[in-house]
Design a protein around this nucleic acid. Structure first.
Length: 327
DNA sequence: TTGTGTTTTATTGCCTCC
DNA sequence: GGAGGCAATAAAACACAA
């Protein structure tokens, strides 16, 4: 299709700028009139399509040579040469934002329009962001998986302790039934029951729940295995203590994983193709069903949920990853 | 060769900052 | 209000399998 083509010369910043209005094919946002915000060039295209490389505009002067355009009428967008991309990449590594001076300088070096350099940086930032999001997702998923494994182990432990309590309770009841209420108020350790209670109370104050539970568990086991008599009151106290500790374990577990709520956050494999994710390397936002996350300017990732917050400094690339568990 | 998926370049509209 | 950034989108260029 023959395109009606208007060529404007503008007095834009930096290099002399040409503006093409390709009024022919295409439409919508991407195709058709290829100009934007003032000066916007459309570059010469290699007619042969892939493989045939033609040099870009090398100097601003060339841009203004009418012969140049007669020779290679710009119609479509064309890719940058590997050399141009290489230089742009190096520049991007130094700083991913583009100040006007640097843009002009790069454009001059590469024989591109400053706008092209800006566009390239923009899309490069987008790719970097996508890649970073992928990495953040992978780290979050790893953290989540590890935490879930911990949770499962805790639950197993919890179940095991429950079984022990049940078993001990049964044995205690049997014992009480056989001995009646004549048992002496002396613990298996040989200490008076009152002393044992004080010791357990002290331990509760000072020791972690699991340690306290172990003390109580050992005492209960001692009593059963040695067959020494303890009063029903003491045993009940001890079991009560066990129960409290179990409750504590329960509640701590629940505070991490209330029911199955964490399943709201679907952290399965991401369909990158469907999500339009490309393979590259930020600062971005993303969301999943029921679990959205986003990053602030410092690269800290947030989950949009009620959360426990943990922050990990990532020494590998310096980015900081934070993750949450849902309450 | 052709159909299809991916990547790259470019446009548009909106937003923020100065 | 202008400049610049970003998300969404279009379309060309490219890659690759059938």
């Amino acid at each position: 299709m023959e395109s009606g083509r208007l060529i404007f010369s503008t007095a834009g910043s930096g290099a002399g700028q040409m503006l093409f209005l390709d009024c022919g094919a295409g439409g919508g946002a991407g195709g058709g009139a290829m100009f934007h915000r003032g000066a916007r060039p459309v570059l010469g295209m290699d007619e042969g399509g892939r493989g045939v490389k033609r040099p870009f505009f090398t100097t601003p002067d060339e841009l203004l040579e009418e012969e140049y355009y007669d020779e290679q009428l710009p119609e479509k967008k064309r890719r940058l040469t590997p050399e141009q991309v290489h230089l742009l990449e190096r520049s991007f590594e130094e700083e991913n934002k583009l100040e006007p001076e640097r843009k002009t300088e790069l454009a001059r070096k590469l024989g591109l329009q400053p706008r092209q350099v800006a566009v390239w940086f923009q899309s490069r930032r987008a790719r970097w962001k996508t890649k970073q999001l992928e990495r953040d997702f992978a780290r979050l998923k790893a953290s989540f998986d590890a935490l879930r494994a911990d949770h499962d182990a805790l639950l197993q432990d919890n179940n095991r302790l429950h079984s022990q309590v049940m078993s001990l309770t049964e044995k205690l009841q049997e014992k009480e039934a056989s001995e009646g209420s004549a048992g002496a108020a002396v613990d298996a350790s040989g200490l008076p029951a009152a002393d044992v209670k004080v010791a357990v109370a002290d331990a509760e104050e000072q020791a972690p729940a699991e340690a306290v539970f172990e003390v109580q568990q050992v005492k209960a086991e001692d009593r059963v295995s040695t067959g020494s008599g303890g009063s029903a009151v003491e045993d009940a106290d001890t079991l009560l203590g066990c129960g409290r500790q179990l409750a504590a374990v329960d509640s701590s577990v629940e505070s991490y994983f209330p029911g199955d709520e964490y399943h709201d956050c679907v952290m399965g494999p991401m369909d990158h193709a469907a999500a339009g994710i490309q393979s590259e390397e930020d600062d971005g936002a993303g969301s999943d069903e029921g679990c959205s996350y986003y990053a602030d300017d410092a690269g800290v990732l947030f989950a949009d949920h009620n959360h426990h917050h943990h922050a990990d400094d990532d020494e590998e690339d310096g980015s900081q990853i934070s993750w949450w568990m849902w309450n």
